[in-house]
């Protein structure tokens, strides 16, 4: 089961902070997961097109071609602004 988290502007725009589902077999990378989510409609398309969007697998920021097995915690979030 994939656990997906959304933070900050994304959480607000998507009106959700977390969801879980089984990764479809044909989705094997972070980029493909983003495409899958963007296919849900305009709201998802816009939110996941955010400039500088970051993706983390198991709490490590990673590239968009990182492989997924389907048992990860995946987080999407905008560029960070702490400090």
């Amino acid at each position: 089961m994939l656990n997906i988290l959304y933070f900050a502007r994304l959480r607000e725009d998507l009106n959700t902070d977390q969801e879980q589902f089984d990764l479809p077999e044909d989705v094997t990378t972070t980029d493909q997961l983003r495409d899958l989510l963007m296919n849900r409609g305009e709201r998802w398309q816009n939110a996941l097109s955010t400039e500088g969007l970051l993706v983390a697998i198991n709490q490590d920021v990673c590239d968009w071609n990182t492989p997924l097995t389907g048992n990860e915690e995946v987080a999407f979030f905008p560029p960070v602004t702490g400090g």
Partner: peptide, 30 residues
């Protein structure tokens, strides 16, 4: 530590102003 905290630690700021609310944009200077 401060320079990398600002650019890598997953914190996000939202400002409330007299004009409304907005998420703070990341700065290239950081």
């Amino acid at each position: 530590i401060m320079d990398f905290l600002k650019t890598q630690a997953p914190f996000w700021k939202k400002e409330k102003t007299t004009e409304g609310e907005r998420w703070v944009d990341a700065k290239t200077s950081d």
